[in-house]
Amino acid sequence: MEKSVDELEKDQRELIHVLHDVQEEFGYIPAQAISQISKQLKISESEIFGVLTFYKAFSLKPRGEHLITICVGTACHVRGAPMILDEFERKLGIKAGETSEDNQFTLETVNCVGACALGPIAIADGEYHGQLKTRKVDKIIDKLMSTKRNGSD
């Protein structure tokens, strides 16, 4: 961790950049990273915490191996997003915003991904699944389970 923060530029304007890198690397922003960045960039911890809680891109809790994002924007909502979300919640045994106990899945909602014509839409590990039906949910989860993210293991 120290190393990864060390490599970053020591410019206060780089804060968001740095946070993105840490988020990418660890899947969340650990508390040690905040104090490390604070020392490195000479920005107070409270300010860093302010920035990272402002943006949804950063997470304070470890995210699961796989990230599933359900669009619940107006168009998707009308086209049945709540049912899709219900199905995911039921199948994964977690609520939106939570991570499964085995750390495999994190389920999140988003207000719009700008692909309303394809609604309802879900994004699984960066892959967009448009015009979803509840019966397709199983397939998506199975596909995720058979692949490992970042090629690890």
Binding site: E45, S46, F49, G50, T53, F54
Partner: peptide, 21 residues
């Protein structure tokens, strides 16, 4: 000393200390 900051955003914005310091 910068103990206080503004956390989160919009209606959830709040002023508080970080990490119980």
């Amino acid at each position: 000393t910068q103990e206080l900051g503004v956390f989160e955003r919009g209606i959830h914005s709040r002023v508080n200390i970080y990490d119980l310091t």
